[in-house]
Deep mutational scan, measured.
Amino acid sequence: MSGIALSRLAQERKAWRKDHPFGFVAVPTKNPDGTMNLMNWECAIPGKKGTPWEGGLFKLRMLFKDDYPSSPPKCKFEPPLFHPNVYPSGTVCLSILEEDKDWRPAITIKQILLGIQELLNEPNIQDPAQAEAYTIYCQNRVEYEKRVRAQAKKFAPS
């Protein structure tokens, strides 16, 4: 494992614990031996107030490669969400998460999670990743928002 990646992720964890947006979660997972795995984080993004996503808490896994922060983490909703920019596998399609697009090593975990929260309610229809959600979003916004509200209710924190 890269010392650069681990040191950056340790800084990220410290900064997150000191200050993070209300309702968001970002925690490194534990290895079988109980030690912390900084390369694999369990996160959760709350649906934004005043949107059909409100009330939901959407679980996301963030996986970092050894060359982080040169390369972005892979962000994957578990379980996958109904959304035009979420692949059926759950992987998020967002330009700041793509090395050859808008990724920059200075982007923080907090910025990534806030960017994904923004994307939930403002899909990028130029870059669809899920045919069904994309089609319904474009053709029947009322039905799309109904499905999103049902999903938010399903993923409401207990």
Rank of each mutant, 00 (worst) to 15 (best):
S7Y: 07
A15T: 13
E122M: 12
K49Y: 09
K48H: 09
S2T: 11
R17T: 01
I45L: 06
I107Q: 11
G23L: 06
P128Q: 02
M36E: 05
W103F: 11
Q11I: 14
T108V: 15
L81R: 04
A133R: 04
L97V: 14
P73L: 05
P52E: 14
C75S: 12
L120K: 03
I109A: 12
S70M: 10
V27E: 04
A131Q: 14
R8W: 04
P69R: 01
L94M: 04
P88E: 15
E143T: 07
L6N: 13
K18C: 09
P73K: 03
P80M: 13
F64M: 15
T29M: 11
L9V: 00
Y68R: 08
I96T: 15
Q117I: 07
P69T: 00
F24C: 08
L114Q: 12
I136F: 13
E99R: 10
G47C: 13
I45P: 07
I45T: 10
R149T: 09
P52I: 11
A44E: 13
C75E: 03
N37D: 14
E145Y: 12
K153T: 08
L38Q: 00
P46N: 07
V148P: 05
L119P: 01
P52M: 10
R17D: 01
K101L: 13
G3V: 10
W41L: 03
P21A: 01
P73G: 01
Q126P: 04
L60D: 03
T29A: 09
D67K: 07
A26Y: 01
G23V: 00
E78S: 11
L57V: 08
P52D: 11
W53Q: 03
P105I: 07
F64I: 11
V25E: 02
V86I: 08
P69L: 03
P79T: 13
P123K: 00
S158F: 09
R104G: 04
E12C: 00
A152G: 07
C138N: 15
P88R: 15
D66F: 09
K18M: 07
N31S: 11
W41D: 00
L113N: 05
A15C: 12
K76D: 15
W16K: 05
Q139R: 13
P21N: 07
W103Y: 15
K146E: 13
G55F: 15
D67T: 10
L114K: 11
K18P: 00
G56T: 00
P69C: 03
D19H: 07
H20L: 03
E78M: 14
K146F: 08
P73H: 03
L57N: 09
A152I: 04
P32C: 09
A15N: 08
N140V: 01
A5E: 11
G56H: 07
E143P: 06
P72I: 01
P52F: 10
F24L: 04
I96K: 04
K101G: 09
R104S: 10
P73A: 12
M36K: 07
A152W: 04
S89F: 12
K153V: 03
D66H: 12
I136Q: 12
P52N: 15
K146A: 14
P80R: 11
V142H: 13
P69M: 01
G50V: 08
P52C: 10
A129K: 02
S158W: 11
P21M: 06
W41R: 00
D33V: 02
G3S: 04
Q111V: 14
C93E: 06
D67I: 05
W103C: 00
K101C: 14
P157D: 10
W103K: 01
R13E: 03
P157C: 10
Q126D: 10
M62V: 12
K153I: 15
K110E: 07
L120F: 06
Q130G: 00
F77R: 03
R61F: 11
L119A: 01
D127N: 05
D127L: 01
K101H: 14
P157S: 12
N37T: 12
D127M: 01
P79Y: 15
S71E: 15
K59D: 08
K59R: 13
A10N: 14
Q111G: 15
D127A: 05
S70W: 09
A15M: 06
R141H: 13
F77H: 01
L38I: 10
A150C: 10
G55I: 08
K49C: 07
H83N: 01
E132M: 09
R104H: 02
Y134C: 07
I109G: 05
W103E: 00
W41F: 06
A156Q: 12
K110C: 06
P32T: 13
Q139F: 07
L119Y: 14
K154V: 14
T29N: 15
G50S: 12
L9R: 01
G56I: 02
N37A: 14
Q117C: 12
T91L: 14
E143F: 07
F24E: 08
Y144I: 03
S158D: 03
A44S: 08
A156R: 13
A152D: 00
S71F: 06
R61C: 11
Q111F: 14
E54T: 10
K48F: 11
Q151T: 05
P72E: 09
Y134D: 06
